[in-house]
Amino acid sequence: MKYFYYPGCSLEGTAKEYHISTTSLMKALGAELIEIESWSCCGASAAESVSDLLSYVLPARNLAIAEKMSAETSETLDILVPCSACYLNLKKVTEDIKTNLQLLDTINTVLKEDNLELKNKLQVRHLLDILVNDMDINFFKTEVKHFFEDFSVAPYYGCQCLRPYHVFDNPEKPKSMEPLILATGATIHTWEMGPKCCGASHMSTKPEVGQTLVGNILKSARGADMIITVCPMCQMNLEAFQKKISQACNESFNMTILYLPQFMGMAMGLSEKDIRLDLNLSITKKFKTKYLTMTSKPVMLMTASA
């Protein structure tokens, strides 16, 4: 397994632990990641509201650099993207230019200024897609050192890795994370909130709306030991505002929120510097104690019930 890697801006700042745990996990799984050289911002949600063309050109620049790297090495690699918003921005370009050749032409007129050209030769893929479809689940099972047997995990997918492009999972009833969770010995928390919206930037711009949406998710996660995410925006919304939301909803939310590669890395026994749980904003005392008790048990050869 070998991929071009587009981390995106969040993974250099607010989602550092997502970057660290993704690269560590992929390495432990035997995959090689080649970071796209001098990659730039995908435009996030800002480019669309400033200029339509810019919202295509900014992601396209990164795709064109990856194509250039691919041509130089004669290797056609998929582009791995852990952030769902970056994934969608990049993916949107590759989808839209398939049918809109005039758009491709305009994009290339702009990219020419940077001596780049987009030919649409590479696939953009979300981290979850790659873990589900490229990773050998049996290999992962043999690598699991710590069995999360008494843990219940709520898989949270969010929106943009599922919709609008129907790629690797059911956009209404996603299940792709379940085999990965079961392989660690944990059970799946049954809930309907997996594909529901966290409100994205509402949490800062329209807090009362964002808090309602996240409050519903946290409420529905009651009984689980943790929520697992695959997007920096979802992660931030679920972990950073639990106190405020508790006050607003008259509840008391205290839930552990982890990135999927952190969780898988923990199960594989990767070191603290590889998963950086210290950077998460919400890891409960109860969870820490339970996890420490689990990891202090002697490692035994067990077969996961999955």
Binding site: C41, A46, V50, L54
Partner: peptide, 22 residues
């Protein structure tokens, strides 16, 4: 006005640094 300024400053930061400098 507020969201407009927010997005403008965001994009200007990208223009200067290639990536967002929060």
């Amino acid at each position: 006005k507020q969201s407009h300024r927010f997005y403008q400053e965001f994009i200007q930061s990208v223009r200067r640094h290639g990536r967002v400098n929060e």
